Amino acid sequence: MTLPRPAARISRLMLGLVLLVAAGLVGAFLAAPDRPVEGSPEAGFSRDMAVHHTQAVEMALIIRDNTDDAELRTIALDMLLTQQNQIGRMQDWLIQWGLPLTGARRPMEWMGGHHGGGGTADYTKMPGMASQQDLARLREARGRDAEVLFLTLMIAHHQGGVDMAEAVLPLTDDAHVRSLARSIVRSQSAEITVLKQLLEDRGGSPAS
């Protein structure tokens, strides 16, 4: 059956609109950035920074038990809550990307081996990570000794975190990763200044 001329025009118009919408959807799909995959800088950063943050949380918990200094206990609590929250965000990304929370690649491999870690699977090779011996000493220390050791370790730890966050920025276009990395650079750089002053007040000096 031949459609009346106005109906034919409407039919052709509807078909054209459908094709335009479909083309737009396909174009948007093709233009959408791929989610990070296994071996990507985003996956490596999220996993390694989560491990790095976990040690900071551990040290913050230790110093809260081993000092009566109200200011330092408040700072430690803030670190604990902030970094625990960021750990949750990074782990949530990995889940959304369809990736496991841990991977088979060596720590810091996403940085291209320029982290000074020697390419081993030793987590202490992450920038700023305290050794197990350092953590054992921190658990045993009390009062001013504990405070000086904590501040010394945490300054180095924060600087390592800043280095990691700065390293991922040129490697990723992911808006969430870039936002968190910038936040880490800002907040931990500011905290380093505060921690150095607290250490100086106690007669200590940052490790070189």
Rank of each mutant, 00 (worst) to 15 (best):
M164L: 13
Y123T: 11
L169V: 15
Q132S: 10
H157Q: 09
L135T: 14
P127V: 00
G161K: 09
A167H: 10
P127G: 04
V148I: 15
A156V: 03
E140C: 00
A141L: 03
L138N: 05
V168H: 08
G160W: 10
R142F: 03
E140K: 14
L138M: 11
H157W: 03
E166G: 11
A136V: 03
Y123A: 06
L169W: 12
V162R: 10
D163P: 00
R142M: 01
G161W: 06
G160D: 08
M129W: 05
H158K: 10
D122P: 00
F150N: 03
V168R: 07
D145V: 06
G161H: 07
R144Y: 01
A136P: 04
A141E: 07
M129I: 09
A146Y: 03
L138V: 11
D163T: 14
Y123L: 15
E147V: 11
S131P: 05
R137I: 02
S131T: 15
Q132I: 05
I155G: 07
H158G: 05
D122T: 05
A146T: 02
Y123G: 00
G161S: 12
Y123V: 14
Y123R: 12
A146Q: 08
R139K: 15
L169K: 14
M154P: 06
S131A: 04
L153A: 09
T124W: 00
A167T: 08
E166I: 07
R139F: 03
T152I: 04
G128W: 02
I155Q: 09
A130S: 12
A165N: 13
L135A: 04
M154I: 08
E166D: 12
G160I: 12
I155C: 05
A136S: 13
D122Y: 08
L169S: 12
R144S: 13
V168D: 12
E166L: 15
D122H: 11
S131Y: 01
E166S: 13
Q159M: 05
A156N: 14
H157K: 09
